[in-house]
Nucleic acid binder design. Structure first.
Lengths: 171, 171
DNA sequence: TTGGAAATGTTATATAATAACACGTTCACC
DNA sequence: GGTGAACGTGTTATTATATAACATTTCCAA
């Protein structure tokens, strides 16, 4: 049985998050340089803000934080255009069920959008799994469906929240 | 290897759709009776409109069609409340990537939300797969994540559109 | 038959995203 | 170095999606 985890799935575990941020930013810069696309100051600022945590961030929250940070006024198209760029480059993902955006943990690999989303702490954990992809492909094949892209959004309780008993304090 | 298809996955294939509609309505009525919840005229109308096709329908389109059909004015909360009810009863699903709603093809079974969505004709094909669910569960287990719900949205080209060569006429 | 819960109506507003056009910056090419 | 076309950003307005809050009606059990 193949290893289905990705080594970088550290969201939802205790870790030095400043390293996540710096790694993400460095990777983004070199990736953009490689592709010959421009990671402008604005785009870098937006990416950096998104990477402040592993919790998906809404476009309007992002907008507010950006305005606060830069003093200049920021209108929706400003953030949406930056997000569009970052999505195209595979540097961020959109979480459809939350209308929110989160940094991609392994932008160098071709991959789909698979997330475990904790209902308690809000963290979105990106994951990959070979058997998962194969069974998805098998289902599609059976129905003659040609896959172009897919997104999996799983909602539940992450290890930390479960261990801390957050999940049981519900009403 | 287990059979991973569901017998009712006929969206995207040639079929007598009026039977889909009548089956869905009959099942809904008996299911609601069984559960002791009220499938009111409005809710039934909304469900019926959603079932006019296998293409997910937006809330505002639904609202317009409902207004046309009933002559009385219909405001957003009217449809959203009906949708909320139908979602709770498992009679419809929400397609997050489209902000749209589609009838559930097997509301009697406990199940997740898995869809193949054709980019060309718009049809959403609900499917289920045991191996898919197990590998998803395995991924979650590895990370200590407790699953409560999930949704899988696959975008691509359905068999009919692929066969008709629609997919190759793109620019 | 009546009173309370559930459903629906109504008005206003919140939240998310895009269209359209103006202005500025960058960079390859002359 | 100049220049213009492509790209990026600013700005205003609008569209699309969804919900809050409260009024009114309907249903059904006691």
């Amino acid at each position: 049985m193949p290893d289905t985890s990705i080594p970088t799935a550290i969201a939802g575990t205790r870790h030095d998050h400043s390293r996540c941020i710096s790694t993400a930013m460095t990777t983004a810069r070199s990736l953009c340089a490689q592709k010959g696309v421009r990671l402008t100051e604005l785009r870098e600022q937006v990416l950096n803000l998104i990477w402040q945590s592993h919790k998906p961030l809404g476009a309007y929250e992002l907008m507010e934080q950006l305005a606060r940070e830069t003093t200049r006024r920021v209108a929706p198209p400003t953030v949406y255009r930056a997000l569009e760029f970052l999505l195209e480059q595979g540097l961020v993902h959109r979480i459809n069920s939350l209308n929110a955006y989160v940094g991609c943990t392994h932008p160098r690999q071709e991959h789909a959008t698979n997330f475990l989303i904790c209902r308690h702490c809000g963290v979105a954990i990106e994951f990959a799994s070979v058997p998962l992809e194969s069974s998805l492909q098998a289902s599609a094949d059976e129905l003659g469906f040609v896959i172009e892209a897919h997104s999996i959004e799983v909602v539940g309780s992450c290890k930390r929240c479960t261990d801390q008993g957050v999940a049981s304090h519900e009403h």
